Amino acid sequence: MRGSAAFGRLFGIPVRVHWSAPVLVAVLAVGLGGRTLPAWLPGRGGGFYLGAGLLGALLLVASLMAHELAHALAARHAGTRVDSMTLWALGGVTRIGRVTAPARALWVALAGPLVSLVLAGAGIGLGFLALRALDWEVPAALLLWSGVVNLLVAVFNLLPAAPLDGGRVLQAALWWRAGDRERAERQAGRCGQVLAVLMLAGGWVALVRGAGVGLWLLVMGGFLAIAAAAEIQHATIGLAVRGRRVGELASPPLSVPDWSTVAQCLAGSAAWRSAGSAALVDLDGRPSGVVRLRTLLAVPERMREEVRVRDVAVPLGQCATAAPDEELPGPALDAALGNPPLLVLDGGRLVGVVTLADIAVLMRRRRRSVRG
């Protein structure tokens, strides 16, 4: 996710924090310390409510990370690659590879809500225990609040609309029933669009009536609409490339020598610059990475005669690669969409690239053939 920074690793999985995550903490802390706790525990000072609200917000954020970690560990157990977990203003996002079977997809989708339900039960149960048996009012209030919010998180995520976890569950069920992954993904995305419209409409009505929840519904509805449209687009692309191989989709490679300076590269052929990126090749003609135009332009002009392109490029080990005979859709398509360009390698040699432009051309051809 753009705008996020590395925050360490959890069980070997990279954890990232989006710039909007502090907004989530602030909103939760203000809501808890400014309204909920004063109503539950009246008579305390402002500093107490602020500190307790911040503590509760951090507790809930940890719960959201546990939700995402459950998805990640379930995906790893299912043999799927886990790229990262990112915390942001609307919760968390876990980036994983392509799940190969509907039963595995179902388990990965359910893992997060199940953990949230467990945390909800633990929070509510421990909260009542702290209140009734130990008379610890403050810990009880924080535990009860986090338990209730975790319950709401679980219930909301189980709504049958992609990209929510419930939408993934629906997709897995449709995939298992019909045996068509892409069509199941598209149907789950349509359900996501329906839910998004309902949330946007409800948010607008709530705002008109002066209810603060309306803003939350509008934000969540807007996010859901964008994400559901992306799900449908991904499924449509998958249907378009079904039965093809990576080599059929690839275009001739645009490459530059990795020993070139940034100045030489920028002064070279305009073909790769119009594409926005190019493959790097070493002295033996083997690929060594990918250079992006925006990265070269970010190098100060006074340094461009000295800095080598390979010093600012994405190394080959971090690039998306595939063999020309790899079937589509599959991991290669996901890589091409998520980390373009996709380098097509045959025996270690660069034979082509797959860019977003190549996929767009294929989609236009498909639309014309359908109309014809």
Rank of each mutant, 00 (worst) to 15 (best):
A6N: 13
L10H: 10
I13N: 00
V17R: 01
V17L: 14
W19E: 00
A26L: 15
A26N: 07
V27L: 15
L28V: 09
L32R: 02
G34Y: 06
R35H: 15
P38S: 02
A39L: 15
P42D: 01
G45S: 01
G53Q: 06
L55D: 05
L55C: 12
A57W: 09
L58R: 05
V61P: 00
A62V: 14
M65C: 12
A70N: 09
H77L: 13
R81Q: 12
D83T: 08
M85Y: 03
T86C: 08
L87D: 06
W88P: 02
A89E: 03
I96M: 12
I96Y: 02
T100K: 11
L110S: 00
A111M: 04
P113G: 00
P113V: 01
L114R: 00
V118D: 00
G121F: 04
G123D: 01
L126H: 11
F128A: 09
L129T: 11
A133T: 15
D135S: 13
L142G: 03
L142C: 04
L142M: 10
L143V: 06
W145F: 11
G147D: 12
V148Y: 12
L151P: 08
V155E: 04
L158D: 03
L159D: 03
P160N: 11
A162D: 06
A173D: 00
A173E: 03
A173L: 15
W176F: 10
G179E: 03
R181D: 10
A184M: 04
R186Q: 15
A188Y: 08
Q193D: 04
L195P: 01
V197G: 01
A201F: 15
G202L: 09
G203C: 08
V208I: 13
V213Y: 13
G221A: 10
A229L: 11
A230E: 15
E231V: 09
I232F: 00
R244F: 06
R245A: 14
V246E: 05
V246P: 09
V246F: 05
P252E: 07
P257M: 10
T261Y: 01
T261P: 02
L266V: 13
A270E: 13
A271F: 01
W272Y: 07
S277Y: 09
L280C: 02
L280Q: 04
E305Y: 07
V312I: 15
A320D: 03
D325R: 11
P329K: 07
G330P: 05
P331C: 03
A332D: 08
L333C: 02
D334N: 06
A335G: 12
N339C: 09
P340V: 01
P341F: 06
L345E: 07
V354C: 08
T355N: 02
T355M: 05
V361C: 02
L362I: 02
R367I: 14
